[in-house]
Design a protein around this nucleic acid. Sequence first.
DNA 1: TCAAAACACACT
DNA 2: GTGTGTTTTGAT
Length: 724
Amino acid sequence: MPIYQVALPLPKRQLFDYLHEQQNLHPGCRVRVPFGPRELIGVVMSTTQNSPFMSKLKPISQVIDEQPIIDSTMLSLCNWLAGYYHHPIGEVLHTVMPVALRKGESDKPKPIETLRLTQTEPDVIPEVLGRAKKQRELYAELLNHAQTLSVVKQKYTDGVIKGLLEKNLATIELVEDTRIDADFQFNSNVIKPKPNVEQALAITAISQALNKYTCFLLEGITGSGKTEVYLQSIEEVLRNRKQVLILVPEIGLTPQTVKRFENRFGLEVGILHSNLTDNERLLVWQKSRAGKLSIIIGTRSSIFTPMVRPGMIIVDEEHDASYKQQDGLKYSARDLAVIRAKEHNIPLLLGSATPSLESLNNALTHKYQLLQLNQRAGNAVQAKQSVLDITNQPLQAGLAAGMLTRIEQHLKAGNQVMLFVNRRGFAPALLCHQCGHVEECKRCNKPFTVHKSLQKIQCHHCGAARALPKQCKECGHHELITQGVGTEQLSMFLQSQFPQYSAVRIDSDSVRGKAKLDNLLTEINAGAHQILIGTQILSKGHHFPNVTLVVILDADGALFSADFRASEHLAQLITQLSGRAGRAQKLGEMWLQTHQPGHPLLQDLINNGYGHFARFALSERKLASLPPFSFHALFRTESLQAQDGFEFLSHVSQMLQHPQIRIVGPIPAIMEKRQGKYRMQLLLQSHSRAILNQVIGHFSTDIEALPIARKVRWSIDIDPQDFI
DNA sequence: TCAAAACACACT
DNA sequence: GTGTGTTTTGAT
């Protein structure tokens, strides 16, 4: 009897062997297997003749798929993922499958229940129905053609349907779902804008590379018409009867974006986002695999959507942090897109106004082909950026007096202003005026954030909240003061300063749920609010044509951060924010409040733009041998005892000693404690990705087998994006 | 002395 | 990861 090696969803870097009579179970098929006292769903990986567990081999209890649901391309991608990210193969396969398939759902669409008449005498309504008016009505409808049960149920009650069924006049029939049949139709007759010279060059370059792997980095300033380049390139792919997979950041998937694609090509666009149910997700997966969908748009995990006739992958806003998964299999969807495009031999398009230094470096070293769009479409003008020195300046709610005047000018001119603060809530800390004691979360050892409107203090790291204290815990003093400024405070202050205008907060506190954000954005663009105060959300893809003034309250934090990527992220934020303003015909300006007006990074960014800044930042990274000029792998631990994490990482550090690997740590993570767990990390850096990968790969099973490994939660992060 | 909690370990 | 069997802990 053949022995099958099965990948199971466990944090173990091994396959499990099972028996099955059938000779031809293909790799990529799901099976249900007994595992200790329970049953698991795994994926067949390979066949073998003998197993070290011969005596305790159990048989597969059920074969779920006769044909592989993970095709050979996807399977090799999974093997690549397991090797590159040093992650257990079973968990990789689990990550790659839609939830419904993990649970053992069929990969074929469910047949549709259809209501059909049993006799087919035309135009005759049987006497039996007598005066049953509704039943006669339904019968008449069914005379024309059978209808799906769900459609019928919308119009008729269950009683009516039951009536026909009981009289044996109609039956419920299971009909194969044809909604996923391949579809190549698209409308190419839509009037499309004439591309400018740069756009035309980009479109031509992409169109000439449709049948082979090429990675393009489309570096296009905001408003330069990146989307039009996407659209016209997509059209070429559709013409070849191929599919396009488009990845967008988590927040960027708005109904407008989807509409734009649907209207342009007049076809159904598959959408994958976090609010879908498991079955909706599965349907998109099925439709894409069958070739019904020619365009699929989705967030990070969409990179795993199967395609029968892959034609192109697009990653929009490729610098966005949401492409990196932060837990479990810590993959980068952008990097994975490169691997997938190579595997399919199709072009990949990475687009951004503010490309990541990694991608930019690949473009400058000609691994990627750089396409630049430097002209703004129409007569839009880039917002003018300036710094405001706030050293020794009195601040009100974090704003300098000069800035208030400027805000007033813009408001009086009938325009909108937008202010950016990196903190939600009223203030990031509450301290005692008497003894200086700061109220901290016990589980995270971080100050509580004050939420005045809720009369609460809340820890933004673990979510713990309690009532706003009235007196100091240490000395009992009653005068507690807030420290720092959050969106809530700034919004309250500006509303009191300018009562005749409407101030609105845009952060995850005030806009819970996507619909609410969309409503608010509509209100803002209709002019219902004049003062917009928000966090990161403001920088992500939404356009505010009437905003003429953008203020960043505090640009200093990132300039001296422990994270070497902080300045890159600040520059991206500043550039993205300034791209949101002054789009229409209105000239915009952006002001950065800083204590470091002369800081070379700020100056370079403001005077020469992101493109110049990024190239300068790259040269600095090179000097410091930081990524992308070296490669990082980060071991992280979480444990109840700080000592356990230290001990585990010390072992790891000893095992991985290598002349070409620099090891930093074990050191406490930047967030030393979170949710009551102590967090440590060990950073590995090498000039050779191959050596780093090889050494970790060689020892990963030994590390897993360390006795201390059981006492800690540990993980490996390859190409870590942050050191939190 | 017993039961809950913490720990260890196997699972093919 | 999770279910189970084993050891430790602490309150009666």
